[in-house]
Nucleic acid binder design. Structure first.
Length: 328
DNA sequence: ATTATCAG
DNA sequence: CTGATAATG
């Protein structure tokens, strides 16, 4: 997924506690996939209610939100709108991988190979309108704001950080840097004792690489993004070297007679002038405890004890806040 | 992914 | 208290 910038960026390790008091714009698609992939039984079967509806994402949203609220970290979920038409190929390729993984998952299950089953189940995680709608419903009941992007959620979240409405974007992808997000936080996880969160800052990244934001985008276009193939054999390091030497993507394409799989001006525009909404409202409210219980426990079979315990963490966070009005 | 439970 | 393992829906 996304652009492979890992080889050239240097993230800084932080502790979850460093985010106390900060607001984080969560890339909803990225986070929901994480939940849908990971929150499964050992054989890969997702958590489901008695009617067979997947509930893994609801579990993830509830417990992670409870844990960040307890640490006085504010989150805003940002959902994707329409995906750019140039992303079509990426979207269908991912759909294909998921379909094939599902076949392999079922096959491994029949053969009784639990480890293999789980491996493919993770890759088969699929989004659906039901999953998106139930996620939004739960966020509303929890009093957590969400923003519906007109286009790419990553672009919207990045814009919100630029505007100061959030301190960082939370995503496992580095792509938000291309959309100009000043900060991206990876591994915004709670039980992540193995992996602490890490932060990547756009400004310091550009300074370290001695390139401009536009040049970073140009480099990504050489390597390949969700919207273009890129040039075969060019990774982040070579891409960086070429952009530094030639100055911009147009010179690289001309001098190397390279095909990046798209119109560089259009592709630049996706990242540099993305379609975003400037008109959104962000407000945290107290959770509707009985509403959450009705939705999660009555409708979806969650344990009431567990849900109430999670919701306690919300209340603790708000009552210990000095300026309650800042929160609710 | 997160929480609950259990062993040491 | 720490770490491994099971359960969660």
């Amino acid at each position: 997924m996304g652009v492979k910038l890992r080889d050239v960026v240097s993230p800084r390790r932080i502790r979850l506690e460093d985010l106390r008091g900060r607001t984080v714009a969560v890339d909803a698609a990225n986070t929901l996939y994480q939940f849908l992939s990971s929150i499964r039984q050992r054989d890969g079967t997702p958590l489901m209610d008695s009617r067979g509806r997947v509930t893994s994402h609801l579990s993830g949203i509830l417990y992670r939100t409870a844990a960040v609220m307890e640490r006085e970290i504010r989150v805003i979920y940002v959902f994707d709108g329409r995906s750019h038409h140039l992303k079509g190929e990426t979207v269908s390729r991912r759909a294909d991988i998921r379909k094939k993984s599902e076949v392999e998952w079922k096959r491994a299950l029949e053969e009784g190979d639990i480890d293999r089953a789980r491996k493919y189940a993770v890759r088969s995680a699929r989004m659906s309108s039901e999953i998106l709608e139930s996620s939004k419903r739960l966020l509303e009941l929890l009093g957590i704001p969400y923003v519906q992007a007109p286009g790419e959620g990553e672009a919207q979240a990045s814009y919100m950080v630029k505007m100061g409405d959030a301190w960082a974007v939370a995503s496992q992808d580095y792509d938000c840097l291309l959309f100009g997000a000043p900060r991206v936080v990876r591994n915004l996880t709670i039980s992540g004792k193995l992996e602490d969160p890490e932060i990547i800052e756009l400004e310091s990244t550009l300074r370290e690489l001695s390139i401009s934001h536009t040049q970073l985008v140009d480099m990504a276009l050489l390597v390949g993004t969700d919207f273009n193939e890129g040039v075969k054999g060019i990774g982040a390091r070579r891409g960086l070297k070429l952009i530094r030497e030639k100055g911009d993507i147009f010179n690289v394409i001309r001098d190397l007679e390279a095909d990046i799989g798209g119109d560089p001006r259009v592709l630049r525009g996706i990242f540099l002038e993305p379609e975003v909404s400037e008109d959104y409202e962000i407000r945290w409210r107290k959770p509707d405890v009985e509403g959450v219980i009705e939705f999660l426990c009555t409708e979806h079979g969650f344990s009431e004890d567990r849900v109430r315990a999670a919701l306690k963490k919300f209340e603790g966070a708000s009552s210990t806040q000095k300026s309650l009005e800042d929160w609710f």
